[in-house]
């Protein structure tokens, strides 16, 4: 029994983690490696002989990294909240209510997802300009909803359809309104789905590059990806150490948050369904 668990669980998990994490090992090394060791074809690339914190200090002292970090956090959090709320309402309506046009609506929301941003930033910019939303951080919140809402809505539709109708019917018989059903019966049951939608939405906005680059112009409105590439890539000289330190430092808090989320949504549904 013990041995089979090694083969069916531990070894595969370890293999997966090695594959998924090995670029990070390189990133960590790079962020503490002096430049002359990094660019060496003879030195062991898996190790660092003279670790240095100068890259990290440079990042924190010589750039506006903390500012970028909070910008990114604020935009990502805002976009996530707006999208998840709007998506949840829409998903509930589409999955749980019968009304004319719901099919068409769901299709429309879906199609909205097919639009690649790399080319459509010019027409989109036109709208932002007309709405006087250029160079305002909060406008990114609204822009990001365009690629978050379609996905979150569909994800939540998937989860909501799996929740047994019997629960809802029982509540209706007891005289609950549809809104009460939504907030008091379905919402607690859909917490895992909402958490995954949140994780997806947050990560996608956290990652976004092109819109943040072209729609913001003041230095104080830069996000982490934009700030790092504009400040630390100078022509053909990349400041590898600070770049990677920036990528990692920004990621760690997000991982920490997810760490707690993950636990929450494990217990969420399992308990609720037993009622």
């Amino acid at each position: 029994m013990r041995r089979s668990r090694w083969f069916t669980l531990y070894i595969p998990v370890i293999l997966f983690l090695v594959f998924l994490l090995f670029p990070f090992y390189w990133m960590v090394l790079t962020s503490i490696k002096p430049n002359n060791e990094l660019v060496s074809t003879t030195a062991n690339p898996f190790w660092v002989r003279h670790p240095t914190f100068s890259h990290i200090l440079y990042l924190l002292r010589e750039t506006s990294y903390p500012r970028w970090f909070w910008n990114t956090m604020a935009v990502a959090a805002g976009a996530t909240v707006v999208s998840v709320v709007a998506s949840y309402l829409a998903a509930f309506a589409i999955a749980r209510l019968r009304f004319r046009g719901s099919e068409g609506l769901s299709l429309g929301i879906y199609l909205a997802y097919l639009v690649p941003p790399a080319i459509l930033f010019i027409p989109l910019a036109d709208i932002l300009l007309k709405l006087r939303m250029f160079d305002r951080l909060w406008s990114l919140v609204l822009v990001y909803t365009t690629f978050l809402i379609p996905f979150c809505t569909w994800l939540l539709i998937g989860y909501l359809k799996n929740i047994p109708v019997e629960l809802e019917e029982a509540a209706r018989i007891d005289g609950a309104s549809r809104l009460q059903v939504m907030t008091q019966i379905i919402l607690p049951l859909s917490v895992p789905g909402i958490i995954s939608a949140t994780i997806f939405a947050f990560t996608l906005s956290w990652n976004e590059y092109l819109y943040a680059l072209v729609f913001m112009s003041s230095p104080e409105n830069k996000t982490v990806p934009v700030g790092l590439t504009t400040e630390l890539i100078r022509g053909d000289l990349y400041q590898w150490g600070p770049l990677m330190a920036g990528a990692l430092l920004g990621t760690l808090p997000v991982v920490a948050i997810y760490f707690f989320f993950v636990e929450y949504y494990v217990s969420g549904l399992a308990g609720a369904l037993k009622e």
């Binding site: 910019a125 072209v214 112009s217 230095p219 504009t230 022509g235």
Partner: peptide, 15 residues
């Protein structure tokens, strides 16, 4: 003044 990576000037100027 807005400083951006040299290759990103073109998309912003195009805009």
């Amino acid at each position: 003044i807005e400083y951006i990576t040299w290759e990103d000037v073109r998309p912003k100027a195009a805009l």
